[in-house]
């Protein structure tokens, strides 16, 4: 059946079963491959996107549950002020190695800063522990989140 959902500010119509995970709609139906497949069970966070600004795992979010909510993906997060700061901090700290999980990391980190502009280490642990990085870039992810938070402060 047909669904029309708001992805990165644009209404997109797809014709799939209602129980199809958003991840496959993005990657295979719409060709938006920045969002990654990692586990299919919300265990690794590679597929993280934002639903009305909150981080969600698109691999277990069915298309029929999205409704009128706004979906933001890695392809558009740089258009938000927080997303752009996170991306810059990621580059400044050379976070990415293989890079495969980093779309999800950045989507989770951007959602964190939206809710908590000055996250503590414990806030970072809570918000980011759902995102696995097999290259083990955790030290730099933490530093980059703190850098992005500082740069927000400086710019008021």
């Amino acid at each position: 059946m047909g669904f029309t959902i708001d992805i990165n500010g644009t209404p997109r119509s797809v014709d799939v079963d209602g129980d199809t995970p958003l991840l496959w709609v993005l990657r295979d139906v719409l060709g938006m491959t920045g969002t990654k497949f990692g586990c299919g069970m919300a265990l690794c966070g590679a597929c993280t996107v934002q639903l009305d600004g909150s981080a969600i795992r698109s691999c277990i979010t069915t298309i029929d549950s999205v409704g009128n909510s706004r979906i933001t993906t890695i392809e558009a997060i740089g258009a938000t002020a927080i997303g752009a700061k996170i991306q810059k901090a990621w580059l400044d700290h050379e976070v990415a190695q293989c890079g495969y999980c980093q779309s999800g990391q950045i989507m989770s980190a951007s959602a964190l800063l939206r809710d908590k502009p000055h996250p503590t280490d414990s806030d970072i642990d809570d918000a980011m522990s759902g995102n696995i990085c097999r290259c083990g870039t955790y030290v730099r992810i933490r530093e980059a989140i703190k850098l992005a938070a500082q740069s927000q402060t400086k710019e008021g």
Partner: peptide
């Protein structure tokens, strides 16, 4: 600075799993 970094923060980097030749089935 790493030369491969920028595409890895905006979803543009293309991994094997992202290949989409026209008409591809999954």
């Amino acid at each position: 600075k790493r030369l491969d970094a920028s595409g890895k923060v905006n979803g543009a980097a293309v991994y094997g799993i992202d290949a989409r030749p026209p008409g591809v089935k999954i």
